[in-house]
Design a protein around this nucleic acid. Sequence first.
DNA 1: CTGAAAGCGCTTACAG
DNA 2: CTGAAAGCGCTTACAG
Lengths: 345, 345
Amino acid sequence: MKNKATSFDIAHMAGVSQSTVSRALNDSPLVNIETRRKVQEIARQLNYKVDKNASNLRRQRSSTIALLLFEDPTSDDSMINPFFLSMLGSITKASASRGYDLLVSFQNLDSDWHAEFEDSHKADGIILLGYGDYRSYEGKLTQLQEQGTHIMRWGAPVAEYPGISIGCDNFQGGKDVTEHVLSLRQGNFAFIGDVGDKAPEFQARYEGYLQALEQHSGTSVASVQIDAISAESAGIDAAQQLLERHTPLPDAIVCAADIIAVGVLKTLKAAGVQVPADVAVVGFDNIQLSAFTTPSLTTVQQNTIQAGEALVENLLRAIEGEQTTDYLMPATLIVRQSCGCESNE
Amino acid sequence: MKNKATSFDIAHMAGVSQSTVSRALNDSPLVNIETRRKVQEIARQLNYKVDKNASNLRRQRSSTIALLLFEDPTSDDSMINPFFLSMLGSITKASASRGYDLLVSFQNLDSDWHAEFEDSHKADGIILLGYGDYRSYEGKLTQLQEQGTHIMRWGAPVAEYPGISIGCDNFQGGKDVTEHVLSLRQGNFAFIGDVGDKAPEFQARYEGYLQALEQHSGTSVASVQIDAISAESAGIDAAQQLLERHTPLPDAIVCAADIIAVGVLKTLKAAGVQVPADVAVVGFDNIQLSAFTTPSLTTVQQNTIQAGEALVENLLRAIEGEQTTDYLMPATLIVRQSCGCESNE
DNA sequence: CTGAAAGCGCTTACAG
DNA sequence: CTGAAAGCGCTTACAG
């Protein structure tokens, strides 16, 4: 059995027409139950599977979702933010369970992404993932949308960005974690993470942070903000900057992402600064690593399973022609030891 | 521009036949350079992309690689071994750079994997990933092979398993890390990890471990072995067992995977056992987490970038009809602090 | 309930 | 160098 079987082979064996085979295999009600059983039984014996290329070509759809994972080019090449890896896992499962293939591709702002972008042409819909600046892709994405491709984006809703956005409540999460720190700390605060238009998720977290500080202003709280993209190295750079230029050190450092906090912790440790004794540090994302840093990191959890489900579910709805809208999922504060408070971990 | 452009649209605009458009876009030397340029220019303007379904159907190939990631059902559902997530990243990049799509699917031994397995029918080749027991899949995989699908497997070469295997030198890695421990420790040793036929990678590591012990037998070294699949929870169970039944505790614990070691460290810590003072612990894989445990974990690195490249490269060679054979890549000892030795990390 | 036939958008002998 | 035509394996009106 060198060549894969076709529906004609089955038709021949079952003594029916190829049309009937096709109907039987697609569980069409138009086919006699006996005939259907016979056809399906033969198909199973032959290990027959429908040729997706032919089927999709004929049906004029692809049964495929493209996942474009954007990474900032400046981040370490070797290490994708584990948070997105985790999202990748949940999106894979969510699409598989709905009978859709997932075409994964990594977009890198400085590579020849045009080539990789081709994937998106083979898909009924696209999921965008990454703490990235989508504006540079706007042209291509808009063009795809005009050609009927649906786009779902993980992150904060931004009117100018393409597609519908689903994200966690970054504002509330930033506020919650900052309030937690405020309940334990006084003094100067620092926020590490980009806060411009190009980083809407970080910006929302920053705004939550600012509001918490403001509402707490019985005690006056000073704040500095230092830019950092989503990468350990950026956290190291930012912490270095803090150590060099800001004396005394802030009493608490709120990081826009766990992976940044990891770099911050490393740098502080190397400089002999005690966490949480000298300074409290918190992150965002609840990556696996955050439970293992020393001290373990207080952070905000985004439910990746639920997020993957929501992205796929809404994308498929959009493909079916239903109306979908932006929405936010709740974020959960995870208290660990990096603020010096009690913890059950 | 609601509908995607076809080659006929371009043919019309360029004033040539559709055949010529197809040739021009495939860089056929049979087409006039002027004509080719004109066609390609129009294609770019229209944001035209070849319909892969049609193209693959005609060419009778798929330009797709299926990645089947096997997980043991007993492992925590939420957490895929980060080592394989890292492999996933490198395989994705390696296939993209060669113009192949990657269809990712997670196989779970206890789920209805038949459904997910269908993916493999759409692929020119399959990459198998996971510390899994492939024997239960043998029937399906053999059938695919007979139908002309090429299979590449990450792991130790096992004659009965389907496909060509590429892996790291688990034996040497196991031996190296054990010798390192032996250079610092005397006394009783324990190995945690499955060592049966169903876990050939772990078994090879175990054999390296045994050989190191044997060659060192100037000092007599006692050894126990405890089963554990590749999961943190399995490490916790195994360490618990060690604590309950083995007094005194071994002086060194060699774990078959980092993720097992993470569970072991956690359990020892909870029991008040000091690492490395009371007992040395080492792992295997060099997952990101291993640098962040307390103490940081001495382990063996498998080069995932190189591994992904090798898997894809060899798979494509096999698809082209070239002969390929099993082979091993070197594994590198990474010394950290969990054995109490000096470290530069 | 079933079959004969058209056609999805390409690639590629074949003929010029 | 170019074009007309066949055909990849399906799905689905259309006719019975």
